[in-house]
Design a binder for these strands. Structure first.
Lengths: 216, 216
DNA sequence: TAGATTGTTAATCGATTAACAATC
DNA sequence: TAGATTGTTAATCGATTAACAATC
């Protein structure tokens, strides 16, 4: 594994490989080829090989990549071996669903606490604290939190982002359908359901139209 | 608006424009320039102009695009003026959060019912029915549902997808971190939280490393 | 008219795919 | 050795950006 700069497209495909590899049964062969991976995930084999070359120190011709090692390499590359503390803002349904999601520790993500403008309880079902939003910046500073997860309605998102940044956060994961203005150096990752819906909707429109045309 | 084939990249940016335009205050000017839009969303103005050219029949030099008309053009292009019936499978926390999200009708999305392997209630909080998963295919067929939303754990996702396809569905929106094998013609849109987390995690790793290096 | 803004045509950039040599 | 598979180098493709002419 050489320290090349990785492109975002490659980066986004890595979790797919990782999930597949981790889900393989215990009794599966210890090695797997890029070809096999590509087929399983419906991708081109050259692409898979090139992607893996970015994170792994190589497979062996005729044999493939050692599965355990590959899993480790990807996890290390993605930083899943270090835990990241995060806060979540907006303890509505979506927020609570995320707070309760067990799978995040696989990604090294640890949500410390939730914040809400008007907390209805003082703890989530899982027992994590819910604080009023006024404590947000201070909490981030004192706990050295680097990541904020925004699950408030669109109108409130920018204000929350401002407070997160004031608290010293470096990355924001937002589920609010709103563009966020942030200073350089802060990463905003939009979990954009509207984008997905657009892709789906256009596909369906085309399907419906096609069907009509066929019937004519 | 000429009937050109649109690229996925353009398509994915359209919802951003739409949301911004719809959120503009009532008393804002009736026209808006691509330049203004680009600045507001932190994008290149040429890109915005080119994107808009795909869906709109044109702005006027010096004046820009008529906001109302533009909103309409984008909505029509994305098919948000036609409602799409959908079913959701997996009435867990995330599923319930999505069932309760009011904003979907803006996108023309109408979730008819939820399905679950072991329904705990017969209706969601909003009063939509929750059926056992055994009724899934039949329901899709009889209601001519074209879209399925999967919010079950990864292990169950492929089986649910199979049943959706058996029910005649044409598009799948899945929140399960699992690759789905589907026949050609069926669109799978992955709402891939793992992907987002990877991008965030790598950014934070770099931040942390940078900070260390600076302190040295 | 002058200048802001549009739309188009050409140039650049990056990512994917194809071809091929290396190797176990 | 032969063949599967790797990694690399070159070719293609698509998307973004830059340059510029058109227009209100």
């Amino acid at each position: 594994m050489e320290e090349k700069k990785i492109s975002k497209s490659v980066l986004k495909r890595l979790p797919g490989y990782l999930a597949y590899l981790k889900n393989m049964p215990e009794d599966a062969p210890t090695h797997i080829s890029a070809t096999a991976l590509a087929n399983a995930l419906g991708m081109g084999e050259v692409q898979v090989r090139k992607d893996l070359a970015m994170v792994s120190d190589g497979g062996r011709p005729k044999i493939g990549y050692q599965r355990e090692a590959l899993i480790n390499d990807i996890e290390q590359f993605l930083g899943y071996d270090n835990t990241t503390d995060a806060v979540l803002i907006g303890a509505g349904k979506l927020g609570q669903a995320l707070m309760g999601y067990k799978g995040f520790d696989e990604y090294g993500l640890n949500i410390l606490a939730a914040f809400d403008a008007h907390p209805k309880q003082s703890r989530t079902e899982e027992g994590k604290p819910i604080y009023p939003i006024s404590k947000l910046s201070q909490f981030c500073r004192s706990h050295k939190v680097l990541m904020g997860i925004i699950t408030v309605p669109a109108e409130g998102a920018q204000e929350v982002a401002n407070q997160l940044i004031a608290g010293g956060i470096k990355a924001i994961w937002t589920f609010a359908p709103a563009h966020l203005d942030v200073p350089p150096g802060i990463l905003v990752q939009y979990e954009n359901m509207a984008t997905s819906l657009a892709v789906l909707s256009v596909h369906l429109q085309a399907q419906i139209k096609e069907e009509k045309d066929t019937k004519k």
